[in-house]
């Protein structure tokens, strides 16, 4: 049973079996295309949405799964809402702003679906390898890798702490708040954060000694990666060409 935070979902779909490096690059290119397509290019948005929805269909996880997760981007969309009501002449309805607002919301929604697709079809170690293949600094990739490994430990730790606090904060009268003032509650939470940091420092000490005893010498080594297959190269080249074509076309018609 995977941890509740683990986003990866196993599967045998064509998306899952794609080389992770290719998938990472394709998702990044796709999001870049979303960002470059001009405001109001509705036809291109529909095409991009159709593309991402069909990729989601291919994963066998069900589109509803993706749609539900992608709605978390909604609250931020409100940040762009003022566009609808601002004009150079004061606060009133602005059709151009409305067009821009809907464009931003759509682009953001399509992009986040692509990011979800990447997260649910890529095991974390594959993601790390892809980041290395994209020439991210080795030390940074190693920190991210270690962070992920202990993330679940720390999250469970926090969950236990909050559970313990909740268990000690009971009251027979739900209308009455237990404990002290807001400042007092904040300080209690701060104590929990301090405790968590302290435990993590001790934990990192133990991790370090465990690494030492397994021959760690300060160098992060990674295995050389197999080169991309010809088919994958063609797929990647074709996709990037298609992306350039799409952006050029959309700027030509709607730019």
């Amino acid at each position: 049973m995977p941890h509740r935070l683990e986003p990866y979902r196993e599967g045998n779909s064509p998306i899952h079996s794609l080389d992770s490096r290719v998938r990472v690059v394709m998702v990044l290119v796709f999001i870049l295309v979303c960002a470059l397509v001009p405001v109001g290019a509705w036809a291109v948005y529909i095409l991009l949405l159709a593309l991402i929805l069909s990729a989601e269909l291919l994963t066998d996880l069900g589109i509803a799964y993706f749609i539900k997760r992608s709605l978390m981007v909604l609250p931020f969309v409100l940040a762009a809402l003022p566009l609808v009501f601002s004009t150079p002449h004061g606060i009133q309805f602005n059709p151009a702003g409305l067009e821009r607002f809907i464009s931003i919301a759509l682009k953001s929604w399509i992009s986040v679906q692509a990011a979800i697709l990447l997260a649910v079809t890529t095991p974390f170690d594959q993601l790390l390898l892809a980041l290395r293949a994209l020439h991210l600094p080795r030390l940074l990739v190693a920190v991210i890798g270690l962070m992920w490994r202990y993330l679940f430990v720390m999250v469970d730790e926090v969950t236990h702490m909050m559970l313990a606090r909740a268990a000690r904060s009971g009251s027979d009268n739900p209308a009455r708040r237990t404990g002290g003032t807001v400042v007092w509650r904040a300080r209690v939470t701060g104590g929990m954060a301090g405790g968590l940091l302290l435990r993590s420092l001790d934990h990192s000490d133990r991790v370090y000694h465990a690494m030492l005893s397994r021959g760690y010498d300060g160098e992060v080594r990674t295995l050389p990666q197999p080169s991309l297959t010809t088919a994958n190269r063609w797929l990647l080249a074709g996709f990037i060409l298609f992306a350039i074509f799409l952006v050029a076309l959309s700027i030509l018609f709607w730019g």
Partner: peptide
């Protein structure tokens, strides 16, 4: 390396800590 990795995990988890206002 282990220090930064584990502390990053703790900061991530620590962002879940909250207190009601």
């Amino acid at each position: 390396l282990p220090l930064m990795g584990v502390l990053a995990a703790a900061i991530f988890a620590g962002q879940m800590l909250n207190f009601s206002v």
